[in-house]
């Protein structure tokens, strides 16, 4: 079943910029440009792209906050712009950088309001609350005022709030931004459970690890258009993305020679080796350890911006 359907959806904004002292020039900016895709029920989709690519505009249209300028859009069987209130009961939304919780009140009060605003039946509410408390480890936090929660705790609180009414779709905008490693892991674990239980998830992120661990499918948007739609391996192949092996030698030396990797940077005793993302790091590490005085090493995952930039270079260069 198709839960989200976009058919040539566009969204333009009129921007006024100053031209001279009094005159203002108006021009149109196309934030989303003829976007078409569908998401089936139960999918977990990563929706990525550089800043200003049109990600939040898409999410705002999918939640009914913004009306598309052109095209057709359906979520959970309704037209979001026309039936915003009805749709709100079927979706859950979490913005990583903005909380929907009540700052000065205990977390429990925010949930209680959700129960009444979303008209959740008592039995269902009790069951969902119990599930959220267990999976998100909210037990001790329920009676703490939200302003006293850490960023990671608050994000868990927000996730709970977005799921109490059993939404069919969960939109997440940068759910792991600013969180420490442990909190990130917890949030991802929870999202995996939620998705496994049947909730469709659409998330935007700058962290490729989120996608790697959660999403079977990635969509890349740039300049308002879909430039990639497939799985993560496909994205790496399309973007010819590379991982980086950072090597600390005992002392400065000439650039390392290792099969399948090339040195991209040298700074004192530290050297950076790039190799294709889909290739295993093990043989390269073995080769380096074998021939050089190794002190320390680490592997860095590719950065979204680089992957997309190279994808472009590839597309343009043929």
């Amino acid at each position: 079943m198709e839960l989200i359907e976009l058919d040539r959806v566009s969204r333009t904004f009129t921007v006024r910029s100053k031209a001279g002292r009094l005159r203002r020039r108006r021009h149109e900016v196309r934030a989303v440009d003829g976007l078409s895709f569908t998401v089936r029920a139960g999918e977990c989709v990563g929706y990525i792209g550089p800043n200003g690519a049109g990600k939040s505009t898409t999410i705002k249209m999918l939640t009914g906050i913004l009306v598309p300028s052109a095209g057709r859009l359906r979520v959970a069987g309704v037209d979001p712009a026309r039936e915003r209130v009805a749709l709100a009961r079927r979706i859950g939304v979490v913005f990583g950088q903005r909380t929907t919780l009540w700052w000065d009140l205990p977390l429990r009060d925010s949930y209680e309001l959700a129960r009444r605003l979303y008209r959740i039946e008592p039995a269902r509410y009790a069951a969902n609350l119990e599930r959220c408390v267990e999976l998100l480890q909210l037990g001790d936090l329920l009676d703490t005022p939200v302003r006293q929660l850490s960023l990671g705790q608050r994000m868990r609180g927000d996730l709970g709030a977005a799921l109490l009414h059993d939404p069919q779709v969960l939109y997440l905008d940068e759910p792991t931004i600013g969180l420490d490693v442990l909190s990130k892991a917890r949030v991802r674990e929870f999202l995996r459970e939620v998705n496994a239980a049947g909730t469709t998830v659409l998330l935007t992120t700058h962290d490729l690890t989120d996608i790697e661990q959660l999403c079977g499918r990635v969509m890349v948007i740039d300049h308002g258009r879909l430039v990639f739609d497939g799985d993560l391996a496909g994205l790496h192949a399309a973007g010819r993305s590379e991982r980086t092996l950072v090597v600390d030698l005992a002392r400065p030396g000439p650039p390392i020679e290792a099969p399948g990797a090339r040195v991209v940077k040298v700074a004192g005793a530290r050297q950076w080796l790039a190799f294709p993302a889909e290739q295993s790091a093990a043989p390269i590490v073995a080769a380096v350890a074998d021939r050089y005085p190794l002190q320390d090493l680490s592997v860095r995952e590719p950065v979204i911006e680089d992957v997309i930039a190279r994808m472009y270079a590839g597309a343009v260069g043929g």
Binding site: K60, T63, G64, I65, R84, V85, A86, A88, R89, V93, F95, R98, T100, L117, Y118
Partner: peptide, 13 residues
Amino acid sequence: TGALDTLLLRPAP
């Protein structure tokens, strides 16, 4: 501040 968008996410007028 964008707070209006958050209000529009609620199932209420």
